[in-house]
């Protein structure tokens, strides 16, 4: 196997693994919220970030977006658009958590369940930051691959 192929294979495996993990995270986060939309609407309301008229629509829409984006990410459907939405959602989640922690709100996260014991704290923010790092990798994967393929061309030329 050439250096170039090894690099491509390495990126493909890491990309597939990250896609599978990130996709599974969103699917498992979305399903409990679809099952308990009313409780999730309460969690959304408690963040005090959205106007009243948008709370129920958001509570109905967001869990399905998580599940569909998760499925698309795993299956590799419309990857550029899926990855951009994934990053956008994670950034939004982090911003909402940071604002709420800063405000000193003692509320349910509503991240992976509608359970009121799942409160927001620094741990929930760090968890989302870790997910953001992984999703950023997917976002810039194509440019990394390009750079690597250029590097491998140079490597082969110098040999």
């Amino acid at each position: 196997m050439t250096y170039n192929n090894r690099l491509k294979m390495r990126h493909r495996i890491s990309s597939l693994t990250i896609r599978f993990v990130l996709g599974a995270v969103f699917i498992f986060a979305g399903i409990p919220k679809i099952m308990g939309t009313a409780a999730f609407a309460g969690a959304v309301y408690n963040y005090q970030l959205l106007p009243d008229v948008l709370i129920n629509f958001f509570a109905i829409f967001l869990p399905w977006l998580e599940v569909i984006v998760g499925i698309f990410l795993i299956l590799g459907v419309w990857l550029p658009g899926t990855v951009v939405i994934y990053n956008g959602l994670i950034i939004t989640f982090i911003a909402a958590l940071v604002i709420s922690v800063h405000r000193g709100l003692d509320i349910s996260c509503g991240c992976f369940s509608t359970d009121s014991t799942d409160v927001i704290n620094l741990g929930t923010i760090l968890r989302d930051v870790a997910l953001f790092m992984a999703s950023l990798y997917l976002l810039f994967e194509s440019s990394i691959e390009k750079a690597d393929s250029l590097k491998s061309k140079q490597h082969n030329y110098l040999k």
């Binding site: 399905w64 977006l65 569909i68 550029p80 658009g81 951009v84 939405i85």
Partner: peptide, 17 residues
């Protein structure tokens, strides 16, 4: 690709949800 896929994904999600 992302520019047309994003609204398409959002539209599909809205219909399903």
């Amino acid at each position: 690709k992302a520019l047309w896929q994003i609204p398409a994904i959002l539209l599909i999600t809205a219909c399903v949800a």
